[in-house]
């Protein structure tokens, strides 16, 4: 496959790869690295690419796997400590100021979700894939996707309501 053909296939979904990576890895730079890595891997496999019926879904699965691996190795090193410090600071005064911005607030809520729910909400509510595609990407059953999505949506809404009530009272 030529470079131009490859780019035609890859460019439409590179932003989706990046956004999923950022959802999971949080850091902008790490998400960029992950995207680059995934695209490079795809390019190196481009001979086999015709075999995949859905390159986009395949790329999303690769992204998911890459990011989860990254997170695992991060947890193995002492970066976890940094992360829990970060969680602690949420109680601080700074938090209340930051959370005035509802976008930021939503971002933080989604960050508290388990990885699987994060991915499901990212793929459905932001990227708008259908359930079968998400099931294929995440290697889950469609019913399991729905269950995870329902849980994630309810949790996000609940946290939004809590924040709202807190602000009122």
């Amino acid at each position: 496959m030529r470079q131009a053909e490859f780019l035609d296939i890859v460019l439409p979904f590179k932003d989706k790869v990046f956004r999923l990576a950022k959802r999971l890895l949080v850091s902008h730079e790490e998400a960029e690295d992950a995207t680059q890595e995934v695209l490079m891997k795809l390019w190196s496999k481009n001979d086999q690419m015709q075999q995949y019926k859905n390159v986009e879904a395949f790329a999303m699965t690769m992204t998911k796997n890459y990011c989860l691996d990254k997170l695992k190795s991060k947890q193995a090193s002492n970066l976890k400590l940094v992360h829990s410090n970060y969680e602690d600071s949420k109680v601080s005064l700074q938090r209340q100021i930051e959370l005035e911005d509802s976008i930021d607030w939503m971002h933080k809520i989604i960050e508290t979700l388990p990885e699987q729910q994060k991915m499901v909400i990212q793929l459905r509510d932001i990227e708008q894939y259908d359930y079968d595609e998400i099931a294929e990407m995440l290697d889950m059953k469609p019913t399991a996707v729905r269950v995870a999505l329902s849980r994630a949506r309810k949790e996000v809404r609940q946290q939004l309501l809590n924040k709202h009530n807190y602000g009122v009272s």
Binding site: F6, R19, E32, Q36, M40, I103, E127, H164
Partner: peptide
């Protein structure tokens, strides 16, 4: 239903984020 405004507003916003770095294709 106000909380949903925040929710859907965020989803619409999050969709706009772009990957701006060039796509690297050197190895070939």
């Amino acid at each position: 239903l106000q909380e949903y405004q925040v929710l859907f507003g965020y989803f619409a916003k999050a969709k706009e984020e772009r990957y701006t770095k060039p796509v690297p294709l050197k190895p070939k």
